[in-house]
Design a binder for these strands. Structure first.
Lengths: 216, 216
DNA sequence: ATTTATTTTTAGACAAGTCTAAAAATTTTA
DNA sequence: TAAAATTTTTAGACTTGTCTAAAAATAAAT
């Protein structure tokens, strides 16, 4: 089995790979709040285990084996988040830290039974897709509200920023997963947007619009 | 906070304290499957943190602070075991290893909500009492079936041996928590016992009788 | 196309937790 | 109660994962 640190590296590399095919040492250091030297040490270990493809100074990619492990950890993280929100009534901005611990519980049988217990949810409380036991999931085609034009709209289905402060802001504005929104106006000056959400009108900054995702 | 190793030591010392007031280095080493030298090292650390009372060669006891931590870990272990059996349908002989990992999830809020979710169970699947959030529980007065005389009986309410093989044996014989038993005969030769359990008669060895507990 | 800046790696060190081997303390036995 | 056996502790070493400081490689800029 892999250590906790190894699992966290694989997960970080997976997430970073979504934006950049080749992930750099510094990116990983920033993501894991550690130093580049420590990252280099760990990359050697992961390469020895053939979980990543690594050549000095060239950054890394996950091997098939590494990606499989990363997806299993992400599956566990998201299923536990769903559990915490749907069964234990935590709010969506409270569950990340707990799930960071719970994702390292090793039993596969446990997570499969948890999945069944909750009736095989497809998305976590933030709208992120939950991989099935084989690591498969269909990555939903979401776009930031910032990319919409006036009179376009969609269903709020995910966030780009998972920070508690952003989630709390969305909660307060009732901009939660599943709500239907339409862009009614875009302010030239600062690219802020005015949305129609059910009966109410909400004004959001470009910053928010870039981090809130809708399905068309 | 405490490391995983520290938590495991405190828990082991707590359990060993139930039989012997002063717990020896070797007892701890045996319980944790480690070496006496390693135990000595850890005892120094725990003593520095004032979680145990330790004097060289004299064995250890938990301080109030140490016992509080031990009871919190035991609370978590038993609540997760209950969850695994009652919600995820694991069998009582399958849950120990998983709970050993889950008991180290740190959030207190999480465990309190889990407790509420399951409607505040009083005992885990093996009959062991679950401490409340303040560490309080009433230790049930159980006695081994081996201590009963002919025509005495009681309700099966706990086990002394928690091994999977013993639990599987009990399951197969239908000697499970809650069953009412009566001793109908004790064999002089080997002290084995014949029990009446509902409609059936079961013959158990003295070994089994010593490890199966009843409430009178 | 060199110099400058940035990124990455190497080298050496440290803390936590473990080990083996040997010394010290305690307990048992004769 | 002195020798033998057992238990516990000390001493020194190893592994994992981390760090800082400095060297090497790569990228950017004049």
């Amino acid at each position: 089995m892999n250590t906790l640190a190894e699992e966290n590296y694989l997960k970080a590399i997976y997430h970073l790979s979504l934006s950049d095919a080749n992930v750099s040492t510094n990116q990983i250091a920033a993501a894991l709040n550690t130093k580049a030297a420590s990252v280099t040490d760990m990359l050697k270990k992961l390469a020895d285990k053939e979980l990543i493809n690594y050549e000095k100074y060239q950054g890394v990619t996950l091997t098939a084996a590494g990606e499989k492990i990363a997806l299993q950890i992400i599956r566990k993280h998201r299923l536990w988040e769903y559990f915490l929100v749907e069964k234990l009534n935590f709010k969506w901005d409270e569950v990340h830290e707990m799930a960071e611990e719970m994702e390292h519980i090793s039993s596969v049988e446990l997570i499969d039974r948890l999945d069944k217990f909750m009736d095989y949810p497809k998305h976590d409380p933030h709208g992120d897709p939950i991989p099935d036991r084989d690591g498969n999931f269909k990555k939903h085609e979401l776009k930031p509200i910032a990319s919409l034009a006036v009179n376009e709209g969609g269903i709020i289905s995910g966030v780009r920023d998972h920070s508690a402060t952003f989630l709390q802001y969305l909660e307060k504005q009732q901009l939660t997963i599943g709500k239907k929104i339409t862009v009614t106006e875009i302010i030239d000056y600062d690219h802020s947007m005015i949305l129609q959400v059910e009966q109410t009108t909400i004004h959001i900054s470009r910053e928010v619009a870039k981090n809130l995702l809708v399905a068309i």
